[in-house]
């Protein structure tokens, strides 16, 4: 009797704590999600639409712009996320050394980019990567290149700029996660390995990385979601996905379909569920890979 009373009070308390968030999510998240799910089966222009069944899904397969946006997004994902996370891991490992001089200064400096204002940083990047901008000037002064690189006017270099920009902004952020996790690892494990003559790289690879697996998984999932939704940088830095759709992402295409082109909300919603499906699949793979290695 007392036990069940305790159980019930635990239940009531459990709901009371999560309820404010769930109510707000229900109103401002789940309702719009259901609306967009329903819209993804509608065809038509603006607010004049009718049920179209799987028409929108068929349209995806024949839409060259969608395929371009999809491949760009996956390229960004496949290149940017590994580069960023590996860099973050290396920096974190270097900064985890308590004998390192200027540790907190380095940490602050590398973290700084992620607290910058989005609009400010895109303006600054655009001016730095201009044809006559400081980037080309520096590279030419260092004799790395002879002629200025058309960073934002060339499809290949524009992708490079976007990848650099996101990496610049978020590497420090991920580094902090790793750094925090590394400080949880028991020092004595390293000391023991050191005495046994295990070299630094091996300590990193066989002790640090396995111990960080949960955090690496977490940052991978979050970065995957972030990159699949990539919108701000190609919108603001490379002029709405330019040049020639070279940096057009799925999110930007959804935006174009809804707000720049003749509004086609049903189709836009369908494209957004492509992202959801991708996140679902990739997250599942990432969890499976993480589990496999443990065995």
């Amino acid at each position: 009797m007392a036990q069940s009373g305790y159980e019930r009070s635990q239940q009531v308390n459990g709901w009371l704590f999560v309820l404010p968030a769930l109510i707000l999510l229900g109103i401002f998240m789940i309702y719009p999600i259901i609306w967009s799910l329903w819209m993804s089966f509608q065809v038509g222009r603006g607010m004049n639409f009718s049920f179209g069944g799987f028409t929108n899904i068929m349209r995806l397969t024949q839409d060259p712009v969608f395929l371009r946006a999809l491949s760009n997004t996956l390229i960004f994902l496949a290149i940017q996320v590994p580069i960023m996370l590996i860099l973050a891991l290396l920096f974190a490992n270097a900064l985890n050394d308590s004998k390192l001089w200027g540790r907190s200064w380095f940490r602050t400096a590398i973290f700084l980019p992620c607290v910058t204002s989005l609009v400010a940083y895109s303006v600054v990047f655009r001016s730095m990567f201009a044809q006559d901008g400081i980037m080309n000037e520096m590279l030419m002064a260092l004799q790395i290149i002879d002629n200025p690189i058309p960073w934002l006017a060339d499809p290949f270099w524009a992708k490079v700029v976007i990848i650099s920009a996101i990496t610049w902004r978020w590497t420090g952020y991920n580094m902090i996660f790793y750094l925090a996790a590394m400080q949880n690892i028991d020092r004595s494990i390293y000391e023991a390995a050191k005495i046994d003559g295990v070299p630094a790289w091996a300590r990193f690879w066989y002790i640090t990385v396995p111990m960080l697996k949960p955090v690496i998984l977490f940052t991978t999932v979050i970065s995957t979601i972030g990159t699949l939704q990539l919108f701000d940088e190609p919108n603001l830095i490379t002029n709405q996905g330019g040049p020639s759709d070279a940096t057009l992402t799925l999110s930007l295409y959804i935006y174009n379909l809804s707000f720049r082109f003749m509004p086609s909300f049903g189709y836009a919603a369908t494209v957004s569920y492509v992202i959801v499906v991708l996140v679902g699949i990739l997250t599942l793979i990432q969890f499976l890979v993480a589990r496999d290695r443990r065995a």
């Binding site: 635990q10 239940q11 308390n13 459990g14 709901w15 009371l16 704590f17 999560v18 769930l22 999510l25 998240m29 789940i30 719009p32 999600i33 967009s36 999932v221 979601i225 699949l228 939704q229 919108f231 799925l250 999110s251 959804i254 935006y255 809804s258 707000f259 836009a268 919603a269 494209v271 957004s272 569920y273 992202i275 959801v276 996140v279 679902g280 997250t283």
Partner: peptide
Amino acid sequence: GFEMFRSRFRERIFGSLLLMLSIPFAAL
């Protein structure tokens, strides 16, 4: 609440939140 008062049902709700995180805002 999710951590301190675990229940199977709330765990399911929690699990579904991750997928909601993946819907791009432009669509909503």
